[in-house]
Design a protein around this nucleic acid. Structure first.
Length: 621
DNA sequence: TAGATGATGATCCCTGGC
DNA sequence: GCCAGGGATCATCATCTA
């Protein structure tokens, strides 16, 4: 079982990380733990249950699991924490759970979902069905590989960056694969005669091919047209693929409720997915493991950009177009922790084999803030907090609520309940006593956002600034989930260029993932935030080199080149530029990407481009 | 003077009704 | 398909207070 004990803080549980780390770095070891788990897993597979069902059943019975490398590793925390209690102790309960899944499973729903998924990617239905029949519908990745292989002759640009052998530790090999652009040129010349017929031959429908040509113009390459169609497929998957099968209805029954978004420069409107789980979150059984990354985005280094999802119309289209047309991974952190945080992440990271750092965050307010549980009235049914902002409720607000509640001797009136709930939602209030609500304090926010306890405490930063910095930060568990794919790629450590570092959410995520940081060049305007990160660096005994800059504009081309030559380049450029002019909470200057602060996004693009160019030059020489 | 407090809408999206 | 209503949102700024 995952420990409920609050003492299991990130910063004090190094032993636990050590065990996880060892387990992941040698997944094929013959330790009793792995042997037993492998045996149980193999036995259940032999019994005809799918990997997914087994994993879900084990999770439901209290055994979290991790996706490691190319296969699922079952992982028992009580084994580690309590010195191997034995995975077989709950095997019968797990089998019972799987049996229920099997009995309750609607074959058509899951299979149609798998078929729909690959249909949306443009594969032939007959081939999909054959692949599912041969490999099992739950083996999404193998099905995708099989389909890609079968399509290779007719659809060369469908090769996926995720199909690379990530276990290969030779970075040069991986990047050379990424950098290979000759294939792109060849395929363009191959299909340059008639774009429409070429796209149809590649398996796209005539309608979507002609639509792509109409949208993009007939002068663009076949590869770009194919990328456009694939991008549209993925965007559609955001809206449809993740819908609960129980709620999924025929397309003609879905009411069109949204206004048509303003088209972007490349005529590609972006939708926020509902539910907002992007390419997948840890607790969802279904997630996308492959995507078509535009050729331009495949060049090193890896980049990871974050900002608020609910930005003014057209902003994400602009961001995407400036970051090599990579589609944002829109994720609401409420699927990963107890607080909502709707963010868009544009990155060129692989998306398969992600895993969550353990122990996983608590998913409900009552679990995450257990000290509030006994005061929580039954009529306040909230289980998730709203987004943690930079401002919090005034004492007047909580006083008004207390007086309103104290006016009733028993159960409050319905009007009072409505008022209190509305205020609680608006200001993210939690129950701290009888008739007493309070805003979250900084310590609680640190915990909810996945930071080590007291991460922002001390160092001369005021409480107000502490709350402001936290409100502007990453949700560490969400970012760590995305960055987890880097773990097998950089076993010897990673060099990071961290822009708009804030209080170091990216660095904390890498530390939690136990990815050694060889170099961190950090750029952060706030002195208080720089102090916080420097303290973190010292307190966690980092051995790498740590360099700070105050302003992104100090990172001139010459400076970047100098730093890259000194450190051998950067493996990851990470950052979330200011959202001040994008955030809904801004009543004064929500002026979009052209705003005073948010226009710094273009500095992120400038610096990333210099790093990419310099990386190319360094690899050529 | 630094830090804390409290009042200040706009925008986007979803829901539900017609 | 349209529209009104409501919920949610990495905030800003003037004023107060110690």
């Amino acid at each position: 079982m995952v420990q409920n004990d609050d003492s299991a803080e990130w910063n004090t549980d190094d032993d636990l990380y050590f065990e996880i780390d060892n387990f992941q770095s040698s997944p094929k070891s013959s330790s009793p733990l792995v042997t037993s788990l492998d045996h149980m897993f193999a036995t259940l597979v032999d019994m005809g249950f799918s990997d997914d069902m087994i994993a879900r059943a084990i999770q439901e019975n209290g055994e979290p699991f991790l996706y490691v490398n190319e296969y699922i590793c079952l992982f028992s925390f009580n084994v580690i924490v309590n010195d191997f209690a034995g995975p077989n102790a709950e095997t019968s309960a797990i089998i019972d759970t799987i049996s229920k899944y099997s009995m309750n499973c609607e074959p058509s729903s899951s299979k149609s979902k798998t078929i729909d998924h690959f249909l949306a990617m443009g594969f032939d239905e007959e081939k999909i069905i054959k692949a599912i029949h041969k490999l099992g519908e739950e083996n999404m990745e193998e099905i995708a590989n099989a389909l890609l292989s079968s399509e290779a002759d007719t659809s060369p640009m469908m090769k996926e960056e995720d199909n690379m052998d990530w276990s290969d530790s030779d970075d040069e090999m991986k990047y050379s694969d990424l950098l290979s652009s000759d294939d792109e040129k060849d395929q363009d010349s191959l299909y340059s005669c008639n774009p429409l017929s070429s796209l149809v031959k590649m398996g796209f429908s005539e309608l979507e091919a002609s639509l792509a040509i109409e949208r993009c113009g007939d002068s663009v390459s076949i590869a770009d047209l194919a990328d456009f169609i694939c991008a549209a497929h993925i965007a559609r998957e955001f809206d449809e693929f993740h819908i609960d099968p129980e709620e999924q209805k025929p397309r003609q029954d879905i009411k069109k409720r949204r206004k048509e978004p303003r088209p972007s420069a490349n005529n590609q409107p972006l939708h926020l997915p509902n539910p907002m789980i992007g390419f997948g979150v840890p607790n969802e059984a279904v997630f996308i493991t492959h995507r078509s990354l535009p050729a331009l985005a495949r060049a090193p280094p890896y980049f990871y950009y974050e900002n608020v999802a609910c930005a003014p119309t057209g902003v994400w289209e602009t961001i995407s177009s400036h970051l090599y047309d990579v589609l944002p991974d829109f994720v609401d952190s409420k699927f990963i922790c107890a607080a909502a945080r709707k963010r868009g992440y544009v990155h060129n990271l692989p998306i398969s084999n992600r895993y969550q750092i353990q122990p996983a965050p608590k998913l409900t307010i009552q679990e995450a803030l257990s000290h509030t549980r006994k005061w929580w009235p039954a009529w306040d049914t909230r289980t998730k907090l709203n987004c943690i902002l930079t401002v919090h409720a005034s004492a007047q607000t909580t006083k008004r609520i207390r007086l309103e509640l104290e006016a009733h001797t028993g159960e409050p009136s319905e009007a009072t309940k409505r008022y209190v709930i509305e205020q609680c939602r608006r200001w993210n209030l939690v129950w701290v006593g009888k008739n007493k609500v309070a805003p979250l304090d900084a310590d609680e926010i640190e915990s909810l956002l996945g930071f080590p306890k007291y991460h922002t405490r001390g160092g001369g930063i005021s409480n107000t600034d502490r709350l402001k910095s936290l409100g502007n930060s990453f949700q560490v568990d969400t970012v760590a989930y995305h960055l987890s794919v880097l773990k097998p790629l950089f076993p010897d450590g990673i060099s990071v260029l961290s822009l708009f570092t804030g209080i170091g959410g990216g660095e904390v995520a890498l530390h939690h993932l136990k990815i050694p940081m060889k170099t961190v060049v950090s750029v952060e305007i706030s002195e208080g935030n720089r102090n916080i990160l420097r303290d973190f660096w010292d307190q966690t005994n980092q051995r790498g080199e740590f360099i700070e800059f105050e302003d992104v504009q100090d990172l001139t081309r010459d400076k970047i080149v100098e730093l890259m030559k000194r450190f051998g380049g950067f493996d990851l450029v990470i950052g979330g530029s200011p959202c001040n002019n994008l955030a809904g909470g801004n009543r004064v200057s929500r002026s979009g990407l052209e705003g005073e602060q948010s226009s710094l996004f273009f500095e992120f693009c400038r610096i990333l481009e210099v790093v990419r160019e310099t990386t190319m030059e360094m690899r050529r020489s």
